[in-house]
Design a protein around this nucleic acid. Structure first.
Lengths: 321, 321
DNA sequence: ATTCTCAGCGCATTGAGATTCGTTAACGGC
DNA sequence: GCCGTTAACGAATCTCAATGCGCTGAGAAT
């Protein structure tokens, strides 16, 4: 907001004195002729403004063995394991996973790429929250939603914001799918796709994905995703399960071996298809927690993803079972 | 050193609880069944072990106007300005410049490149000190010294260590020039080049530079660089000045317009030539302080560098004069 | 077996930094 | 011009984190 650069300059100066040069607050205060309280406040503000960044690096090779075994076993190119503090708090797990994924992503070259994003995924939304803005900016960089809106209006709102923010942070432009993710009929789906020009653009971009941040889910309805409207009903999930589905990748169902499950449900979804995924060089999944285990394993077996960020427990189960 | 991963894991866990989740030390202590003192000590250790990194980012656009003007005026691709605390303390300026340059460099893709390094430059040595280790490691990455040894033995030692450390940090292998930077005669120079196989390799690599971290200096002898031995004498500097030199890039003299000054002095130097520089896509200079102003301006005018890290005062003078 | 040494730990204290609160200055409405 | 409102600041205070010190236990030396 504030265009005035002066406070930022001052914050930076103080922050550099404190963190980089290790000068005490009282000394900074006296050398700048201000009070210690002000120094403290400035430092706080600098942290707020993201001028000071404190990162806890997950040391390489901490979980090296497990990670390498997973890579080997499932033919993955990268695996990252996060130690979660509370295995029962899925929200906390997602936060932790998101942070780790953000670190990994920020080390990647994203500029100029077309990146598929799954905006309803909670772990990916926490990734966005943890992501730090990149300097680079390129008109060629595109962030395209890989699924239409799902769930109640509030979630849709969050999703849109998330996509927007993600695009901003990596310096690209967002392509939204302005349509429900699940329609009642194939005809309705066709109609919706043709309805909005932005949606058509986004759908077209799904054929040119360089990187895909895929959402993986179980075959059920989570808390924030209410049935009906623009989401599968319980009956539809049951139908998928009866066909052998153990999980879904952006609402495309797969069985325990990762094989796609063909059904009429496919024709109701507006979003990326499994056939479009392998073209993307980088296929990220950020997923953990017990409830998603089956789905993650299926996605790995089907080679739908090549980079996995998960928690230790899931990782070990993936090796054991 | 320690192969035992357990303390590192524990440190990481505590550090994540403290920094990422913002939990107080007493709470962490009680939840882990240890004392608050231990938590404090673990955090300290984590910082030591570089698991916790606190970075003060120089906000983009803080000095945007000046930076853009400089880019425009001298045809630079990047300019970064650092606000120095004490304009008279050249050592402090160099530290600040080095830190900033380290940040910029760590954002660059260096893997697989051949990087020319000026190990006698104080600002580049402070860059090395501020640089954080990169995960990536590539046998293709080479760090080649761009000048032989200069100055007293102690400085030579520091230089070698600096090159080594820089190579380590970016995950490449160092190529040393194991010869004096300045010889007494052209014949001696030839002899030295042929003397050592490593030196010949390094010299050869100078033709394949992708990135050059060049040292810029004035036409005089700084404190740590004593005359004689393997450095220019006062008389030689005077000779260069009488030919119009206002500065030097790795001991190659240029006039105020940046035009190379041809003289017999060139045939005494073992190091990169000005003719070899333009081939490098990235030509970094990290230089500031009043004493170097003329030299920096000359280097800019001659387009010998394309990325400049300097202090605010120098930047403003470069625009004004 | 005994003693010595040293590292790692917790207690209690000290020191550093965050926060509260009252004051002042700046701006805007009346 | 006066008053009400708000933001910014510093002194004092309080909270939180660092540290000196003594204790304990494991391993080495005798």
């Amino acid at each position: 907001m504030a265009a005035d650069p002066e406070p930022r300059r001052f914050m930076t100066k103080v922050a550099r004195m404190y963190y980089t040069h290790g000068i005490r607050q009282v000394e900074i205060a006296s050398s700048l002729g201000i009070s210690q309280a002000r120094v403290s406040r400035l430092l706080q503000a600098a942290e707020q403004a993201n001028i000071v960044r404190t990162v806890v690096v997950i040391p390489e090779g901490l979980h090296a063995e497990v990670e390498e075994n997973l890579q080997e076993r499932y033919g993955l190119s990268q695996v990252h394991i996060v130690e979660s503090l509370d295995l029962n708090d899925e929200a906390a797990i997602n936060r932790d996973l998101g942070e780790a994924a953000a670190l990994i992503l920020s080390a990647m070259q994203l500029s100029g790429k077309t990146i598929g994003f799954t905006s309803w995924s909670r772990s990916l939304r926490s990734l966005v929250n943890a992501l730090e803005p990149s300097r680079k900016r390129s008109d060629l960089t595109r962030v395209v939603e890989m699924l239409g809106d799902v769930g109640p209006p509030q979630l849709q709102h969050d999703s849109t914001r998330s996509t927007q923010r993600f695009a901003d942070l990596i310096g690209g432009s967002p392509l939204f799918i302005r349509a429900p993710g699940v329609l009642a009929s194939a005809e309705a789906r066709e109609a919706m796709i043709n309805y909005d020009v932005h949606t058509r653009e986004a759908i077209a971009a799904l054929d040119e994905l360089d990187v895909a941040l895929v959402g993986i889910g179980a075959c059920n309805i989570d808390a924030p995703l209410e049935p009906g409207g623009n989401f599968f009903t319980v009956e539809q999930f049951d139908r998928a399960k009866s066909l052998g589905a153990v999980g879904q990748i952006n609402l495309r169902f797969i069985d325990a071996e990762g094989t796609p499950i063909q059904s009429e449900l496919d024709s109701l979804v507006i979003g990326v298809t499994l056939a479009q995924l392998p073209a993307a060089g980088g296929r990220f999944a950020v997923a953990g927690g017990r409830s998603k285990y089956e789905a993650v394993r299926a996605a790995l077996r089907g080679h739908w993803i090549d980079t996995l960020v998960t928690d230790m427990e899931t990782a070990e189960r993936l090796l054991r079972e």
